[in-house]
Structures are given as structure tokens and as C-alpha cells.
């Protein structure tokens, strides 16, 4: 089957800055695909190349077998694009914006009218359709933007950070809607730097870091590949370092424990990687009590996508985020994005 989206060896630089070094990924029809990575990893640039907003320096980008580079117009017909920043004309009503969008996609008038009513209903916007979009809340704006992206029934809906800046409730509305969309056969490609979003939503994931795909598969595959469960142990609320080191020395000798890391950032808590399906809590607590140490808190979990990211890059997504935030020149990036080429 032709992949819904196929990207191969994509490269894109803005002057000196390499935004996308080498991205290769396939999105299958009818799945939700998550592109996960910290800010400035190259997610948005990848999306911009896909949606014909930017010309890549190299590589292949196809939507349903149609090249975004060689046949941009045919590719645009197959794509719906929902940008991170909702750009609505605040003077227009929701319905007027959708009418404009319908004309840009050349829908016949009557079909457009029916389709607009249908989408306003589906997204719970029927009471707001005739209000100016300037009066909308963030959640309503996003929903209208979703409606606009879906007006022409695209094969692939692309959403750049679909829930950034949304309240929890709107976030769940968007998630639910994207699942319905997938179930109806539309392919959904999202970018996100929220682990839980990708974990909850995506059928398959590509983790992208510094312009490269560093891991891809289903969230479960990625976690299983990593192997081992995680145990987080706090001896005291704030454990003295020597106590933590002592516990570490003893816990490392247990046969089901693969690795013990002391995390000074969290009051010297201990992070243990243990063999899956072992029952580690009892023996760990026992070891501690033999050492005369208390247990403030202990929990066991499967590895998260953050652990996948950590294993691949040696830093957590949060750390990467902070580092990127410090080094990023947002103004220059915006200028580049406006230039488009």
C-alpha cells in the first residue's frame, strides 16, 4: 500500500542553521503518527516541507504517492494543515472563514454550505459559527482551525503541536476528535513535544532530535526495546547523599536490578532499572530495612517515551527543552519562517 506520507532523507538549512539534517519516515494510511521531539528539533520544518510551505534542500517528500516538491498543487489537495499558531481573521465570523477556506479549495457552493454546517456540528461550534472569531476562546479557535483543515476532506491531516496553549478540557476534546478522525479513515500526522500527548494518541511515533530521527515504532515497541521496568525510590523526602550511595551499593547487588542512578535533582532519589515482570518492591524494601533505612516512597512503572529519549540522547526531553530554550533565537526563526524559502 502507498504510504500516506513518505519522507526520505529530508534536509533543510536556513543559512547557517541546520534545521533538518536527515529525516526519514513513513506514515501508513489511517493511523495517527506522532513526531515527538524537543523544541527546535526540526519537527516544524519537516512539516513545512511536507505542506509545501518550504522547499527542502534535499530528499524526497510525498503525500499519497504525490511529491510535495514536484507536484505541490496536487499534494496540497491531499493535505489539511493546522498550524501551531491559529491564524484566523478576527473580523470574520467562523462561518465566513470556512466559506473563504472552501473557496480556496474550490468546493462547489452548495457542497461547501453542507460541509460547513456538518463540521460546525461535529466540532460543537454550531452556536459560535456566526460570531466573529475575535471573540473566540483558545479552544474554540483551535476547533475552528481543525474544521478549516478538514473542509476538503483531506487524506492526511497535519497538525503542528495541536494542543499547545490549550486548557486540559479543550485538549481532551481535540484528542477525542483526532481519534474519531483516524477511525473514519483519515491519516493524522501530529508533531508534539508533549510525551503524554504522543503516548496517548499516536499509533506510531518517530522521535526526532537535532534534525534526525533517532527512534521510531509504536510507543510500546519503543518502550519494550528499551527493556526493563523503572523503580523510583525515595528513602527520605530529602535523602543525605551518603545514605543514597550506601543504598545504591547494596541494591546493585540484587540479581534483578540492572542499574541504579542517584538523582540529586530530586532529593537524591534512586532510579532503578529492573528486569520486567520481576516483583521488585518487596525485596528492595527488605534490603533497605536490613540497612536500617526507611522508605519514604517507592513506585514501579514501565519505561516512558522520555526514557526512550533519554536512552537515545543521554538527556531527558525536559533537559533538551531547557537547553533549546536558552540557545534559540526565536526572532530570527520567525523571520526565516516568514521568508518561507
Amino acid at each position: 500500500m502507498t504510504p500516506a506520507v513518505s519522507i526520505e532523507n529530508l534536509q533543510k538549512s536556513y543559512g547557517e542553521v541546520v534545521a533538518v539534517k536527515d529525516v526519514t519516515l513513513d506514515v501508513q494510511p489511517g493511523e495517527i503518527f506522532g513526531l515527538l521531539g524537543p523544541n527546535a528539533a526540526g519537527k516544524t520544518t519537516t512539516i513545512r516541507c511536507l505542506c509545501t510551505l518550504t522547499k527542502p534542500d534535499g530528499g524526497r517528500v510525498e503525500v499519497g504517492g504525490v511529491s510535495s516538491i514536484e507536484q505541490p498543487k496536487a499534494a496540497r489537495r491531499k493535505l489539511g494543515y493546522v498550524a501551531q499558531e491559529v491564524a484566523l481573521d478576527k473580523v470574520l465570523t467562523g462561518r465566513e472563514l470556512l466559506q473563504l477556506q472552501a473557496s480556496l479549495y474550490h468546493l462547489p457552493k452548495q457542497a461547501a454550505k453542507e460541509r460547513i454546517d456538518q463540521l460546525l456540528n461535529l466540532l460543537g461550534l454550531e452556536d459560535y459559527g456566526d460570531q466573529k472569531t475575535g471573540t473566540y476562546s483558545g479552544g474554540l479557535k483551535k476547533r475552528l482551525d481543525l474544521a478549516a483543515g478538514l473542509l476538503h476532506q483531506p487524506e492526511v491531516l497535519v497538525l503542528d503541536e495541536p494542543t499547545v496553549g490549550l486548557d486540559i478540557e479543550s485538549r481532551f476534546v481535540v484528542w477525542d476528535f483526532l481519534r474519531k478522525l483516524r477511525d473514519a479513515g483519515t491519516t493524522v500526522l501530529i508533531t508534539s513535544h508533549y510525551l503524554e500527548e504522543v503516548d496517548a494518541l499516536a499509533d506510531r511515533v518517530a522521535i526526532i532530535d537535532q534534525g534526525k530521527v533517532i527512534a521510531s515504532g509504536t510507543p510500546n515497541e519503543l518502550k519494550d526495546r528499551l527493556g526493563g521496568d523503572r523503580v523510583t525510590l525515595r528513602i527520605r523526602e530529602f535523602t543525605p547523599a551518603e545514605e543514597a550511595e550506601k543504598a545504591k551499593a547494596h541494591l546493585s547487588t540484587l540479581d534483578f536490578v540492572r542499574e541504579v542512578i542517584v538523582n540529586p535533582a530530586q532529593g537524591n532519589s534512586l532510579n532503578l532499572v529492573v528486569q520486567p515482570q520481576s516483583n521488585p518492591i518487596g525485596p528492595i524494601e527488605q534490603t533497605l530495612s536490613e540497612l536500617g533505612l526507611p522508605t519514604f516512597g517507592i513506585s514501579q512503572s514501565r519505561p516512558s517515551l522520555d526514557d526512550v529519549y533519554l536512552a537515545a540522547t543521554g538527556r531527558t526531553l525536559m533537559d533538551a527543552e531547557m537547553a533549546a530554550a536558552g540557545s534559540r533565537d526565536l526572532k530570527a526563526e520567525k523571520k526565516q519562517a516568514m521568508k518561507g524559502s
Binding site: T52, L53, R76, A83, E85, A87, L104
Partner: peptide, 13 residues
């Protein structure tokens, strides 16, 4: 500047 132009540029005009 507000990104509205992108809405036009991704459409199959």
C-alpha cells in the same frame, strides 16, 4: 506576520 498567509499558501490555489 500573523500566519494567515500560510492558510492561503497551503491551499491548492
Amino acid at each position: 506576520e500573523f500566519g494567515f498567509l500560510n492558510r492561503l499558501l497551503v491551499a491548492p490555489l
